[in-house]
């Protein structure tokens, strides 16, 4: 799980320094910042911009483009369900509806108690054994309603 340490501009600058040898270091830096805090703290972006001599708008434009980067901390558990065609062909839509109903949230949202974030993912490459999901980094294939309920029970 990501750390819950408080934001530190010095830590961001250290992360930038760790990537000094790379050509085009911004994306790896954003990944590293998200690993550090579990999301991209708003205060981190101007620090990165200054350190890389980029405009704040440029860094914001990159960070906000990608689905992976979070603007706020995720729940204690992250459930990613594949929404793509190969999983749709084996009942993925029904599972997605069930997950949303059970959790009472939509895609990209976190339950009010902070227990679970539900994310859509477009393909985990498990297309011959769908529906596919990822629970806190653990891959699950051939997910069914029973399996989904068991996952949700674990995350409470």
């Amino acid at each position: 799980m990501p750390s819950t340490s408080a934001f530190s501009g010095a830590r961001v600058r250290a992360i930038v320094a760790e990537h000094a040898g790379l050509e085009g270091p911004l994306l790896p830096i954003l990944h590293a910042v998200q690993v550090e805090w579990g999301y991209l703290p708003r205060e981190a972006l101007p620090v990165i911009a200054d350190a890389l001599n980029l405009g704040r708008a440029e860094v914001h434009g990159v960070a906000s483009f990608y689905h992976d980067f979070r603007e706020r901390p995720p729940g204690r558990h992250v459930l990613r369900l594949c929404r793509a065609e190969a999983c749709q062909a084996v009942g993925g839509r029904d599972l997605a509806e069930r997950a949303q109903e059970r959790l009472g949230i939509g895609w990209g949202e976190t339950t009010a108690d902070g227990a679970v974030t539900l994310d859509a993912v477009f393909c985990l490459g498990l297309c011959a054994c769908g529906p596919a999901a990822m629970v806190d980094g653990r891959l699950v294939g051939r997910l069914d309603a029973e399996g989904l309920d068991a996952i949700l029970a674990e995350t409470v």
């Binding site: 440029e58 483009f65 992976d68 993912v121």
Partner: peptide, 21 residues
Amino acid sequence: GAGAYICGEETSLLNSIEGLR
């Protein structure tokens, strides 16, 4: 990558490596 389908398009991918939008 960081979860953007478009980065499979080669020029978008190059921009992504360069650190551009």
